[in-house]
Each structure stands twice: as structure tokens, then as C-alpha cells.
Design a protein around this nucleic acid. Sequence first.
DNA 1: CATTATTGATAGTATTACTATTATATTTGC
DNA 2: GCAAATATAATAGTAATACTATCAATAATG
Lengths: 229, 229
Amino acid sequence: MEVLPSHIQLNVNQRIFLKNPESSDLGKKIISGSIDMIDEMGFESFTFRKLGQHIQSTEASIYRYFENKHRLLLYLINWYWNWIDFRLIYLIANIEDPTEKLRRAITLLTQSNEVDNNFQHVNEIKLHRIVIAESSKTYLTKEVEEENKEGLFKSFKQLVERVSGFISDVNPEFKYPHMLVSTVIEGAHHQRFFAAHLPMLTDQLHGEDSINNFYQDLVFKALKSKDDE
Amino acid sequence: MEVLPSHIQLNVNQRIFLKNPESSDLGKKIISGSIDMIDEMGFESFTFRKLGQHIQSTEASIYRYFENKHRLLLYLINWYWNWIDFRLIYLIANIEDPTEKLRRAITLLTQSNEVDNNFQHVNEIKLHRIVIAESSKTYLTKEVEEENKEGLFKSFKQLVERVSGFISDVNPEFKYPHMLVSTVIEGAHHQRFFAAHLPMLTDQLHGEDSINNFYQDLVFKALKSKDDE
DNA sequence: CATTATTGATAGTATTACTATTATATTTGC
DNA sequence: GCAAATATAATAGTAATACTATCAATAATG
């Protein structure tokens, strides 16, 4: 995919941050530094104190941007989904056939390692690994319902909604479009993680992108109505 | 399902704990107390200090059983998968038809709320909710590979292996049995969580167990070979 | 140039995640 | 029935985490 025009900015829900990290140098360093560190040490070991040292700033300064590290992670994940949604729109522009739209969406959502488009201060390869390993932790909490009311999962929901629409275009009879989409997205992430760290929980065949093949097949078979058989 | 004979004990890999919690009253209180508390407050807020207060013991005493709360969670999750595996064996005993075996397995793995069989000191309903909300956190860590070498994910792997076997019996040509099984198990958990807390990410139809129906359908369509169509 | 906003430096608090020590039960072996 | 071993409780202590508060220095803006 081509580089995003530099005048476009991906806007994340204002309520995630205290002060927009896009609005200052320090803010951008917080984003790029946290991506480096979370990817390297994992979200549990990551702290604002360590981030402060890494970007030559202080804990207190970072707290002026984000209430806590959970909100920072939410910011990164929302940014990622906005970015994917943007790319999806681009990918299906001018395509009429709903099946082809859906096929492309699945490829985007299950892809292995995206190239780093060097989009500003965000390293996409690292961010993608973070999404795989850490994104479930944003919602698997006791605060999920309140945070949902605050709109902190909006980007993901919007993407799921869009792809669910393609599914309904392909087969309007299919009863579970959202379930299918969220199964594919989260499933593909887990399978990527398994492939890297717990390979006996998945199947990697030589010379193919098994995860993409598996989910393409799964979705289109699921959408076949009985009459087609 | 009938109550498990009381002489049967589900044994969890020895390396998870420092001292077997099944071996003493305190140990059993640690298990039942932690299930209550993790279900109620979530794993992040749960601490050994709080657990000590809850079961009228001390932090230091609990540390003699488990190195840390992560290991305790691993214990609970492994116990759960051993229990499910045991029930699966029971469910398919004397059944010949591989399709029926698989159908039953999927029902077991995607079921909503199991009845509490009052198995000793373990509240299964609460444990099931814990598995749904917390089990991914056992492996989404930087230590996953070392812990895997220690055998800390053995129970889950064993279950996935068993059900993958049923899949291969139904369709020996199918290339991704492990991927399909782990997608179904983890997917069903996430869908249960979504249904409870983020309903726009799933589809719940009135008067049916949509999650079970969805995954039954998904699996059997995925396993249909082209010749059957 | 004065005001305001932003950052850095420093310090402080409550809680967490442990480890260590000692006294007191409790169990078990003989 | 008693000594020895073991398990638990009570207490204390440490380093790190997750913040909050204060104030001075610097930069941006009107």
C-alpha cells in the first residue's frame, strides 16, 4: 500500500487521553517510545517510569498525557484499528463484487507482517505485534462496560461493523455476521501468537500463509447457503 | 453429567505449585477463595494479601503454595482443562460415529453456563467465568515459551490434541485441525465475553444458544470436502 | 514583553509483590 | 506419650509500582 498522505491524521477518541499526544513532540515520543518498549518487554513489565527514562523525560510528564498505562494501550490499539479501517476503505475502493471485497478484508485482517509504512512516529510492525499480544487485555477487565460507554472500543467496533456489512452483502441470510468477523480477527491474532510461541496449538504449513488460507476458507464455507450445495 | 466419583482427583502438573493445594485444608481454601475473589474483582485487582484476609490466613502462607498469582491462575486454568477433558472422555464413551463425537465435543467446549457439580471445593460456574475472562492472560506474556517448556500449558494442549483427532477422523484431508479447534475454544470464550459485556461484537439470537449453533455450523461446513457438495 | 501553558526535577504516599524470622500449633514416628 | 519434624500464623521489612503534588525553568502566544 502506498504511503499515507502526510496531511492525514488518524484521530483517536479524545476521551482516551488527557492531552493529545499528536499535539506535541513529547506526545509523539511517548507514542513511539511506548511502542518500542511494550513490544520489547511486554505490557506487564512496562511502566511510565521506565518510559520516562527511555525518552529522556519524566513519569510525571507522561501522566499529563495519559491517566495510566492501560489508557495508553487503548490509545495504541484504537490507533491501529483506525489505520486498518482506513486501509480497508482504500483496498475496496471501486470494487463492486461483495465477495471480492470480503476476500480482501479477510486478507488484511489476517495478514502476517505488514510492511512498515513509516507512518510518522509509529512503527507498524511493532504495533502489529503489540495488537496480537496485548489487545485482548484492553477489554478483558472488570471496567470493560464503563470504558465501552466512554467509547474506548469504538474503532474496533466500527471495523467489525464494516466487515459485517460485507458479509451480509455476500449472504443476507447469514445470521451471525458480527460473530464471524470478531472470530476471524481475534482468532487470526491468536493463531499468529501460537505460531510464534505455542506451535502445537496451530498448524503452519510450509510455503503458504496458513492463517490467511484457513480463515478465507472458513468464512466462505460458512457463508454458503444450503441451496448452493 | 453425573457427579464425579469422590475418589477421583484431577491432577495438575506438579511444577505449577510449590506445595500441592490438594494436600491440605489451607490449600483447598486458597483454591476456593481465589476462585471467589478472581471472579468477583478480576485478576488484576486480586492479590495474595487480599486472599489471605478473605480466607483468614496470611500472605506468607499462600506464598508457600504458589510462587505468585500468575502461577495460581495457571493452576486454576489447568485444573479446568483437566476437568473438561475428563468430561469429554465421559461424553464420548461408547460412541462410535466420529461426527457425533465431534458434535458433542463442540457442545461441551462452547457451552454457556455449566451447572456446578459441586465438585469438592471448586465452584465451576465461577471458574468457567474466570476461564472466559482470564485464561488468555496465562499465555499472552513474554514468559510463554519458558513456561511452555515447563509444561504449564499441558492440559490445554492435550485437550486440543484430542479434539483435533476427532476432526481428522471426520475428514482426514483437512489441513488445519489444531487451528480449527483452538479457534473454536478461544473464539467461543471471547463470544461469551462479548455477549455479556460488548454485545455489538457478537450476535445473540433470542431463544437459541447462538454461540453453540454458530460454531457447530462453522466446524462442519469447514470440514466438508469439495466432493460432498 | 507579559501571560500562559508545558515540561523537568524532585519528593512523597499507598499499594503490590515479594522474603525473612520467629513463635505456635499440629502431625507423625517410634 | 513424647520427641522430632512440619505447617501455619504473626510480624516485619524491602524494592518496585502507580500514582499525586509542588515548584522552578522553559517555551509558546497574544
